[in-house]
């Protein structure tokens, strides 16, 4: 088997020498995509969130984005509309009706979920996204060409693009405070939250904690930790008192988002055998049909 493949490659290589030369380089080219056992995560308990939006403020300050004074965040009229993260706000809090009459409405913070198998990392044409050891999925300004395929790929609709900029528009999304965590600090939103809605810790411990909370408080939560299995698992995990679909969480299966396209892609390009075989096949047809025609004419 091995022998025959090598033989074949040798033959095919003569025809497709140019292409074949690129093969080994390609195998090494994938961006950093690690899944460390000790990767960090955040558990968001939406039943605790009061919608004070201090996380939005802290996020802007931590990322040097322009922000209104902190008092302006008391304005709850913003909840009239469902908001999404955008280049000027990497995290936003939305409000949803509480199914229990008379109880305060449900607030949900949304931002990048930092998938274990990120679609953006797989999709990015130049590998500008990478999954880091600490769980963060970050974007590399130096590589990006602004194609926005990451936005198409993301199952959580997270990456945003600076449409208003003619030069150096950025893809903006929560970076899990990669700079801060590198300095030993915790993410800005986790730090400022007055209700400690968020817990920052090792993902596997947070999963445990989440299930413990569900067990200890039957009735408070629905029995599901969103992000434990969705699209292969995410670093950010959520607890809620109401079905997640009603809180604008997308309904996603347990398969990683990039799974299907990556395996198909790798099948087509397995050691460049299929393209080179096709090349050889077409070459053969060309040669035979040409010879047939010549002999016919003679």
């Amino acid at each position: 088997m091995k022998q025959s493949r090598r033989d074949f490659l040798k033959t095919a290589g003569i025809l497709g020498a140019g292409l074949a030369g690129l093969a080994p380089k390609k195998a090494l080219a994938a961006p950093k995509n690690v899944l460390s056992d000790d990767r960090m995560g955040v558990l968001v308990d939406t039943t605790l969130c009061i919608g004070c939006r201090r996380c939005e403020y802290a996020c802007k300050v931590a990322h040097d984005l322009p922000s209104d004074p902190i008092e302006s965040y008391n304005d709850r009229s913003v909840f009239a509309q469902k908001r999404r993260p955008d280049p000027s706000a990497l995290t936003v809090v939305n409000e949803f009706e509480n199914p229990v009459a008379g109880r305060a409405s449900i607030n949900v913070k949304t931002q990048c979920r930092h998938c274990d198998y990120p679609a953006c990392v797989s999709a990015c044409i130049v590998g500008a996204f990478s999954k880091q050891e600490n769980g963060a999925v970050i974007w590399d300004e130096g590589k990006c060409i602004g194609c926005r395929y990451c936005m198409v790929a993301c199952p959580f609709q997270v990456p945003t693009f600076e449409y208003e900029k003619a030069l150096q528009p950025e893809i903006r999304k929560c970076d899990f405070c990669f700079k801060r965590t590198g300095e030993g600090k915790i993410p800005a939103c986790v730090e400022i939250c007055p209700m400690e809605v968020m817990k920052y810790g090792k993902r596997h411990e947070l999963v445990e904690l989440a299930h413990q909370r569900i067990k200890d408080n039957p009735g408070r939560y629905i029995d599901r930790v969103y992000g434990e299995y969705e699209v292969g698992g995410t670093s950010w995990l959520y607890l809620a008192s109401k079905e997640f679909e009603k809180l604008d969480f997308p309904e996603l299966g347990p398969d990683p988002a990039p799974g299907a396209s990556e395996s198909l892609q790798h099948a087509i390009f397995a050691y460049f055998v299929p393209p080179i075989s096709l090349f050889a096949l077409l070459g053969g047809i060309m040669w035979i049909s040409k010879r047939g025609k010549e002999s016919e004419e003679e």
């Binding site: 380089k25 195998a27 044409i125 060409i145 602004g146």
Partner: peptide, 22 residues
């Protein structure tokens, strides 16, 4: 359509073998 069209040559330098778009 590219936000950073002047970086289009990056495709030839920074390869991402997993990317269909690549």
């Amino acid at each position: 359509d590219l936000g950073r069209y002047y970086n289009i040559w990056h495709v030839m330098i920074f390869w991402n073998g997993n990317s269909v778009l690549f």
